[in-house]
């Protein structure tokens, strides 16, 4: 929630309370306030379809409230009646009447301004890998393979750092254009891609998989996706054509090292995905 929006709406309501606003003003305030909070108050915006449902319910409820007793009905329509009939309101009334075509025109303009969007097709973002792949002539068993340089972390720290640095070099020469200089998936080309490049800082990406999963994804890229991953959609190249297997393992080391995550333990697989 964006607190500033909510507080602003509450503040307006408090002011209305202090000046003892009429029922009609209150109804308008509630509708607009609800709209403001729902439309702008969420960090992740609510889709228009849901917003429409909520606003329709709000409108229906406010209508029910305004007409649910004679007193309230009177308090609602009397100001409207006065505005429409009393001579002192002639000018504002004319302005309102004149602005109606303008509002319609504006909303039509807004509707036409919507950029064309392709339809949405559901795809599995992280589909399950095949049992084994062949990368540059080398067979890799994806269920069991560990990063061949991962054990250096304990045995030979110097060598491990060298591999990580090599991975860094590979990343910034090849990957960062899309995946970003902070690994956040917001590289300079990212805005043109759909699906968006993976965000390695997201806790749902690196720690959820073993390193072999990423080896598969790097080596085989978008075209290597199974059907449920929509192979034609992803712009990820098949890096086995450009990088050696060692370089790919190195860049995985670098990703985990730089993002500060640990790969998912080998034996954990199969415990959750069962049968």
């Amino acid at each position: 929630m964006k607190l500033a929006i909510v507080l602003a709406v509450v503040a307006v309501m408090v002011v209305l309370r202090l000046v003892r606003a009429g029922l009609l003003v209150w109804l308008a305030a509630w509708w607009v306030g609800t709209y403001a909070v729902l439309r702008y108050g969420f960090v992740t915006p609510i889709p228009a379809s849901a917003l429409h449902i909520f606003m329709a319910i709000t409108a229906l409820s406010l209508f029910a409230y305004a007409t649910s007793s004679r007193e309230r009905m009177r308090a609602t329509y009397e100001p409207v009646l006065a505005f429409a009939s009393e001579s002192r309101f002639t000018l504002p009334l004319a302005l309102v009447a004149a602005s109606i075509p303008g509002v319609v025109a504006w909303s039509v303009y807004q509707g036409l301004q919507q950029p064309l969007q392709p339809p949405y097709f559901g795809r599995t973002v992280h589909p399950s890998p095949p049992a084994e792949i062949t990368s540059r002539g080398e067979k890799v068993d994806l269920a069991r393979a560990a990063n061949p340089f991962r054990n250096l972390e304990k045995t030979d720290v110097q060598a491990f750092r060298r591999h990580v640095e090599n991975g860094r070099r590979v990343y910034y020469r090849n990957c960062f254009f899309c995946h970003g200089d902070d690994l956040g998936g917001a590289g300079m080309y990212a805005h043109g891609l759909d699906p968006v490049p993976a965000n390695f800082l997201d806790s749902g990406v690196l720690p959820m998989f073993q390193e072999s999963f990423f080896f598969w994804r790097i080596a085989k890229g978008g075209p290597g996706m199974p059907d449920e991953g929509a192979p034609g959609d992803s712009a990820m190249p098949e890096w086995e054509r450009m990088l050696s297997n060692e370089e790919m393992w190195d860049v995985i080391l670098f990703l985990y090292d730089d993002a500060g995550y640990r790969p998912r333990a080998l034996e954990a697989v199969g415990a959750e995905v069962a049968h």
Binding site: S128, A131, V269, H275
Partner: peptide, 20 residues
């Protein structure tokens, strides 16, 4: 499901079932 992402499983996931 085949390749389940997020949330608890209600029924066994079939991804990689050939190995298991």
């Amino acid at each position: 499901t085949v390749g389940h992402s997020g949330g608890p499983l209600r029924y066994p996931d079939l991804a990689g079932v050939a190995e298991r």
